[in-house]
Every structure is written in structure tokens, then in C-alpha cells.
């Protein structure tokens, strides 16, 4: 991480501002999507946009794009464990008799 920072020296401004613009665009998109008659697709669409926002923030603001493997492992395991929780809990609630 340190070595790469020294060699590449990305700008202070460019990355964050682009990310910020993307985030606000996605926010607007999400509000618009919420108002459209999308039926069952509305929720997945909203969540997908929110997930995109989370990814942009994670990669650019939280610098997962240039983080050590250790940090990435950490983020990935949080995600995996959350999936585990959702999958197994829904395995019950969706099939309850």
C-alpha cells in the first residue's frame, strides 16, 4: 500500500469528486426509481442501486481498491457471514409450514 502510494501518487481530489458525483447520481436514480411503477422489480432495483453506492464508497472512499489483502479479506468475510445469516434464516422463514 505504501509503496504503491509513493509510486503512483493519485490526486487528492479526482477520485473522491468522481465518486461523490457518482453517488449523488445514484441517489437521484434511486429516488426516481422508487416513484416508477416497477412492481416487483422496484425493491431489487432500489437495493441494487444502494449496493452500487456502497461499492463506490467502499472502493474509493474506504480505499478498498488499494488496500492490503488482509483488509480485503476482512471486508469479504463480513459480507460472506452476512450472506450466511440471511440465507439460513430465510431458509426457515420462506419454507415454514
Amino acid at each position: 500500500m505504501t509503496r504503491r502510494e509513493q509510486t503512483e501518487q493519485p490526486g487528492i481530489w479526482l477520485g473522491p469528486i468522481l465518486a461523490w458525483a457518482a453517488l449523488l447520481t445514484l441517489l437521484a436514480l434511486n429516488v426516481v426509481l422508487a416513484g416508477l411503477p416497477l412492481g416487483v422489480f422496484k425493491l431489487p432495483a432500489n437495493l441494487a442501486v444502494a449496493a452500487l453506492q456502497a461499492i463506490v464508497m467502499g472502493l474509493v472512499f474506504m480505499r478498498l481498491n488499494r488496500a492490503s489483502w488482509l483488509v480485503r479479506l476482512c471486508a469479504v468475510s463480513a459480507f460472506l457471514w452476512i450472506s450466511l445469516m440471511f440465507i439460513l434464516a430465510f431458509a426457515d422463514t420462506l419454507t415454514r409450514v
Binding site: 450466511l84 431458509a91 420462506l94 415454514r96 409450514v97
Partner: peptide, 18 residues
Amino acid sequence: GFMVWGHHMFVSGMSPYA
């Protein structure tokens, strides 16, 4: 160990498939 918690709930009314 994270995937087995449901065995505490077998008689709770949980889905039999789960």
C-alpha cells in the same frame, strides 16, 4: 459453527426443511 444454530430451534415451529 456459524451454520448450525438452527438445531436449537427444532421444536420451536421452525420450518422442517430448515
